[in-house]
Write a protein that binds this DNA or RNA. Sequence first.
DNA 1: CTGAAAGCGCTTACAG
DNA 2: CTGAAAGCGCTTACAG
Lengths: 338, 338
Amino acid sequence: MAKGGAPVTMSDVAQLAGVSTATVSRVVNGRYGVSASTVTHVRLAIERLGYEPSLVATSLRRSRTNVLGLVTHTFQSYTAEVLKGVMDALSQSGFDLIIYANSDLYGTYSDGWEQRHLARLSGTLTDGCIAVTPSGEVRSGTPIVVIDPVKGSTVPSVTADNFAGATAVVEHLLGLGHRRIGFIAGRAGLEAAWSREEGYRRALAKAGVSLDPRLIARGSFNPESAAPLARALLDRVDRPTAIFAASDGMALKTLEVAKDLGLSVPGDLSVAGFDNIPESALAEPGLTTVDQSMDRLGYEAARMLKSLVRGDWEGPGQIVLPTRLVVRGSTAVPKTSP
Amino acid sequence: MAKGGAPVTMSDVAQLAGVSTATVSRVVNGRYGVSASTVTHVRLAIERLGYEPSLVATSLRRSRTNVLGLVTHTFQSYTAEVLKGVMDALSQSGFDLIIYANSDLYGTYSDGWEQRHLARLSGTLTDGCIAVTPSGEVRSGTPIVVIDPVKGSTVPSVTADNFAGATAVVEHLLGLGHRRIGFIAGRAGLEAAWSREEGYRRALAKAGVSLDPRLIARGSFNPESAAPLARALLDRVDRPTAIFAASDGMALKTLEVAKDLGLSVPGDLSVAGFDNIPESALAEPGLTTVDQSMDRLGYEAARMLKSLVRGDWEGPGQIVLPTRLVVRGSTAVPKTSP
DNA sequence: CTGAAAGCGCTTACAG
DNA sequence: CTGAAAGCGCTTACAG
């Protein structure tokens, strides 16, 4: 059994077994060259004391830790899905995962905090890190893979084909006859946000529909950020007949706002999102959206990072995964075509 | 800028600034007794090199790290909600959070792995830990709080009033006229699973409805585990008119199975769950369930852990949070009362 | 087969 | 005000 107070250290084990810590270390790590009887004694002492090697001390001494890091600033459905994919890729791989989240979410360190944490983890604790939608460019002494990087980033990354996805959704709305299509954009700076907006713009342009800048609202991917924006769009006298939100979280929030305002979806308003989080299939009506299989993003990022750490990555530096339009009940032909 | 290769260490900074590492450490930690000009030089060197102190080295040396740990073995909606609550409680608290997830989910270490990881983190990296639905009893040299502990556990814990919640849901079904009520149990060993089953049993007994043991299926809280169980229950000639699953994930899966079998809910079958995860409100029909506000579980656990670490916890060792029956469309009067 | 010693990157008395 | 030295819990050449 473990002692009540301080954690059991290797010295405690060594003392009880009557050997040096070097020998205990050899037994713990299964190194050859320890006599059978010593092994037995040490094992017994370990058992008796409930000893587990300190992750920190081990990783400080070793160059390789077999621990991968992940930094994120939020825990939404998107994050949960990504994590599932990451864990799936790491399953049985020998790599454990450490997720670092800082508590000063809205504090002074908000901007660029991923970079700080990456630096604090890498080189000692982790062999490499995944950064999820970081607020800026990141770099590190150890391998790094970014899921949804900032625009223009050159670090290894995994991202969905956001441009194609957004184009598809807007063309779907145009095809239904919509001409006044509102857009709620994602967090500025992120490649994903930019590409989705670009898809929206290009699709309109290609269809010869002139863009009304008043129909573009600036969100942050955060569901909460969408409520006032959706309300503002829908309060307009010349309100849009459809709204495309750059994330499902924001689209779902738009659905709520529409309901509050007494607008029926898709009767009075069509709504589409981007992501295809689990909640979107269950919404009433089901949300038309773009599937970017977030677990796949996580899976690929982890797969890439593993290879990078082992030094045998052969693929491209930037992975772009296909997207797929998912049409559900939230989009339909507008009531009155203009 | 950081160097390309190995991470920048305190020695690098000391060398560039022309001082000792002791002085750099003082500047980094804002200690008094360093001349203004030295501070300036050191700060400049830190800036130039992009230095960040190694979390591992710092925590090995210091007794207090201001990092809290959390171990979990899964990332489902439940976990995501719990994490939101934890982050909320930690926001601006000065404590950061490290989540440890091991990759051998289905491997040899599966059982009791939380205990191993707790021991590896505590004493050095973390000041205390939260364990989410651990597979066994856990102990540690540093404070620990368990969310949904195993039955009979005596460590500090936070849990919902599972018995009351389950009783309420079953009484609701009985009140609608159901007499054959199936039950899909949660992971054996957990207090939450036991109490929910006990609530089911007692409510039936109290209503004078005899328990049919063939109507009890043994799940694991994992949504996937419920599919074959629900199918087996519904394939019976004397199938139940209602199924109460011990978690929403499993209940939602039961909804799917019913649909596959051509059974309408709540027409042919009533379904109820436990948890009230976000998806449940969006399901079609909405899922009748018991709200245990998982973010609250996380919030309270983090609050308790903070106090425990600071040594000023005044409350009880076991916190039990109230639950609330949420009636939605998935439950109704059975078609043919027996 | 085993141990003494050095060192991973820091912090903290202890001298000066 | 500043530095040399010890030490946090480990691992790994290096001797023996």
